[in-house]
Design a protein around this nucleic acid. Structure first.
Lengths: 331, 331
DNA sequence: CTGTTAGCGCCTTCAC
DNA sequence: GTGAAGGCGCTAACAG
């Protein structure tokens, strides 16, 4: 049986209140007393019980990072993992710990959304529905939505300039004279997909180019799928001279296809990615891509959430981090 | 103020015990009753308080994944992230949630190791010291060590066949006739470093080759460092004909250096990696490497820990997952 | 199947 | 600077 605060109090001769203070607010306790308490605690292997503490304080100092279960696993996802890491850092800096769970953890047997877990607030990453957000809100659970934009009152959403990024990528291509530009789009959440696709279309429209549907493909965002898809496109008699890939994993798969087809890059085909994931500068030639400030996204989301937890009422807002073109060797 | 179990009990006319059961063990409650309880709960936006629940049950159903703070961030680490993912999956399957924290979360103001957080057990990943393990154990906190081997009684460590893998890689190279084989070793934890280096040395010894210290380099395991280091080696007049890299990130960096130097792979230099990370089949040519069963490592660690949490006493053991050579295009 | 009762271990007033 | 007492919200016996 683990020692409790009472055992320590008995051993050191002080009251449990003093023992409690010695750990929770050391400066409210006389130096000498504190030492005695610690000594007794050490002798008994006593450690404050975090649960009991959370119970009485009404706070856990934990934050939940929740992702849709069906979504490509976060930690393995080259886009989400840096965001997650940034959230982690920010939380640590502010004294919070991070919980990682899927939306499954948020369902009760009666189907209601609820927090079965011990957290003071939630970052809802990727796909997520308004219903869940509202359920959470109704239970006074602070929420911030990440990489998605949901239309709910007083909700803060943190995303990036999806549309602007796509436009940036496409204009870069059209400015270099490309006309036959294909898009290989990953089947992401609607928010991401449509914004990026709109950028593609609008850029084409700007140069008076109509959309050739043979050049528009949607795939599961894996390198393998991309390689396969790109191989087909590149073997068309009038193949595209440039391919806009809606993330870097797809771009890498496309790059493989081009390399295997013996094409020169960028002379024969230009390839542009999106996200500026780690992989983009690991491949050779290195990928031109649109940089998304993943660190900022994570940091902002965490800070916004913590502000809410600590009492602020958020306005309804969509925070978009800016994007930037990174020109490397594939365009 | 959030509704409590009592409010629900009052509203639906049952006792709080029944309300509690309706959520915690629905099958012990009559269908009709359950419905009424849920209805009242919904009306009040009631949700069981996870903290209070954990307090009285003496369990949180949470597991902590703890990493050394100075360690290269887990989620971004191509080796740890699949392990982490596997732990996550296994935990989810068994009804546990995962907490991610650094060793900093485990220190009290008095310097003692302790669990400030709400968890039933801990997976200590990567570098970790015996002292911390013992402190944790003394507090009845189940621990499993991952990717490390520590000499403590009744402690389960999960790692992989580091030495065997290195031997496998090296023999593959020597069997193909290589004699001048370099090693670019990442500065990992001693456990990993020494085992892999021993494999290198022993394989060289097998063919009667002495170790040429110009061909032995230790670096921070980034692609950039590796590229730089490999460039130097490859510009030696009597450059190595093969390079054993102690992980895939290093191998990728080395590959870049070789490609840029205009060398043909594997004819001019063979490159072999370690881990079989995602990246290994994303680069072109694809990397020959030693596959480490990261999924198994994560799964075993989680299962071992959960067994302990649920009452089993572990033997002192080091579980090594087997490795396997994956021959691709760089050898 | 449902109700009663007794804490879980701690923090936080409020006194002294 | 320290002590006494109350209660956080829930579950787990034990009855009925």
């Amino acid at each position: 049986m683990a020692a409790t605060i009472l055992d320590v109090a008995d051993l050191c001769g002080y009251s449990k209140a003093t023992v409690s203070r010695a750990f929770a607010s050391p400066d409210q306790v006389a130096e000498k007393t504190r030492q005695r308490v610690y000594e007794a605690a050490r002798a008994l292997n006593y450690t404050p019980d975090a649960i009991a503490r959370a119970m009485v304080r009404g706070r856990t100092d934990n934050i939940g990072f929740v992702i849709y279960e069906k979504q490509y696993p976060v930690v393995l996802n080259p886009f989400y993992s840096p965001i997650f890491e940034s959230v982690l850092q920010t939380c640590a800096r502010k004294g919070y710990s991070l919980f990682i769970s899927s939306d499954r953890d948020l369902r009760l047997p009666n189907g209601q959304t609820c927090v079965k877990k011990q957290m003071d607030g939630i970052i809802l990453a990727g796909q997520s529905d308004a219903q869940m957000v509202m359920d959470l809100r109704r239970q006074n659970m602070p929420v911030v939505v990440l990489n998605n934009a949901i239309d709910v009152d007083d909700l803060t959403c943190v995303t990036t300039d999806q549309y602007g990024g796509a436009l940036l990528a496409m204009r870069h291509l059209t400015e270099r004279g490309h006309r036959k530009i294909a898009i290989i789009a990953g089947a992401f959440s609607p928010h991401v997909c449509t914004s990026r696709y709109n950028g593609y279309c609008d850029a084409l429209r700007e140069i008076g180019q109509t959309i050739d549907l043979r050049f528009v493909q949607t795939i599961e965002p894996t390198a393998e799928q991309a390689t396969q898809c790109a191989s087909m496109m590149l073997s068309l008699p009038d193949r595209p001279t440039a391919i806009f890939c809606t993330n870097d994993t797809i771009a890498v798969g496309t790059l493989k296809a081009a390399l295997r087809a013996g094409l020169r890059i960028p002379q024969d085909v230009a390839i542009i990615g999106f996200d500026d994931s780690e992989i983009s500068h690991l491949v050779e030639p290195e990928l031109t891509t649109v940089r998304v400030d993943k660190a900022a996204m994570g940091c902002i989301a965490a800070e916004q959430l913590i502000a809410q937890i600590e009492g602020e009422t958020p306005p309804k807002q969509v925070i978009q981090t800016p994007v930037e073109l990174v020109i490397r060797q594939t365009t």
